[in-house]
Design a protein around this nucleic acid. Structure first.
Length: 343
DNA sequence: AAGTGTGTTGAT
DNA sequence: TCAACACACTTG
């Protein structure tokens, strides 16, 4: 069993780790222009010349030297890209280069190989095949989601790890990898409620997810992959107060995204291969099995009503799994006007 | 209160 | 298509 025993602060992928991302391959950025200190938040920013401390302009934020990067009032940087006359927000970042890199990723995803990017070396090498496949294997919505949540680097690393160093991984390598079901749990109301945790039945927890003694109090982070190939990272720990093993951080997001309800069955699996990859899946028990109804409501009117099953896996040329490329942005013209309800 | 990201606009 | 700006909204 391989746990990533890192603490909370380092688990949020706050910055792209050069060791695991193409960030290490950034070409040297242009010399920084005279930097202005951007301070405070909200609309009343004071901008000072860093040398003289002179109030140059009491409102203006220093713009970024990178394409798709915009300053934020608090000194952080936002990344955005325009698609079909709509802005797609890519998140906020402490590091200007990280924001620029996020833009590059999005540009490559939305505009293809000819996209103009900030870092010329981005995906320019043959060694980047893994990342190209990764981009290809995920929908635009997924990539944007990863960028906004700062999980892109982690998920890319996970993906590369699964495919091994050999980028010529064949389809059968990926598909034929067998799994064993570790256990299933019928989730309780509290598992899907506001407690933001899933209780792992003690016998299963101690059998399959034994906590290293040093990690009992602090917990560990465990990665699970779902049927779409998305990697979920949960904090796993032991709560002395209730004497129970729980998945905490990350769990509520899973509940939300999968629209889990009490009575649904969550399955935990593990690859029997050497990677011991963990998987998580869920199913709806009872008469209303599996089909999920999706109503798309536009301007308050249900414009279509789709009954679908959970996404099936399709293997692409890269040997990865492709999830349905539902372009949320076409539907997301405005948060106020387009609502997707998963019922 | 601090931080995020959308609405809007003018430039390219 | 793009960035600048203001500020409503969300989060901690």
């Amino acid at each position: 069993m391989v746990f990533s025993c890192i603490d909370e602060s380092s688990s949020t992928s706050e910055s792209f780790s050069p060791a695991t991302t193409t960030a290490a391959k950034f070409s040297a950025p242009p010399l920084p222009p005279l930097r202005l200190n951007r301070m405070g938040s909200g609309g009343s920013n004071v901008v000072l010349d860093s040398k003289n401390g002179v109030d140059i302009d009491s409102r203006k934020l220093s713009s970024s030297k990178y394409k798709g990067v915009v300053p934020q009032p608090n000194g952080r940087w936002g990344a955005q890209i325009y698609v079909k006359h709509q802005r797609v927000w890519l998140g906020t970042f402490s590091d200007e280069e990280e924001a620029a890199h996020s833009y590059d990723i999005a540009a490559r995803k939305f505009r293809g190989r000819d996209a103009v990017v900030n870092f010329k070396t981005f995906l320019a090498s043959e060694d980047d095949n893994g990342e190209l496949c990764f981009l290809e294997a995920h929908s635009k919505a997924e990539i944007v989601d990863m960028l906004r949540k700062h999980t892109y680097a982690d998920e890319l690393a996970q993906s590369n790890k699964r495919n091994g160093a050999n980028t010529n991984t064949t389809q059968s390598d990926t598909v034929s990898r067998t799994r064993e079901v570790l256990f299933e749990k019928v989730v309780t109301p509290s598992d899907v409620g506001k407690l933001n945790r899933l209780v792992i039945p003690k016998q299963h927890a101690e059998k399959h997810f034994p906590l290293p003694s040093l990690s009992v109090t602090k917990g560990v982070l465990i990665n699970f992959e779902d049927v779409t190939g998305k990697v979920w990272r949960f904090r796993y720990s032991y709560w002395n107060s209730s004497q129970s093993y729980v998945l905490t951080k990350g769990w509520s997001q899973f509940v939300k995204e999968k629209n889990l309800r009490a009575g649904d069955v969550v399955t935990f699996e593990r690859s029997t291969g050497s990677d011991r990859q963990l998987y998580i899946d869920w199913k709806r028990s009872g008469p209303s099995k599996n089909p999920v109804q999706v109503v798309v409501r536009l301007f308050g009117v249900d414009i279509f009503n789709v009954t679908s099953t959970k996404p099936s896996n399709v293997v692409d040329a890269c040997g990865g799994k492709r999830s349905r490329d539902v372009d949320m942005f076409a539907l997301r013209c405005s948060k106020k006007h387009a609502i997707i309800n998963t019922l």
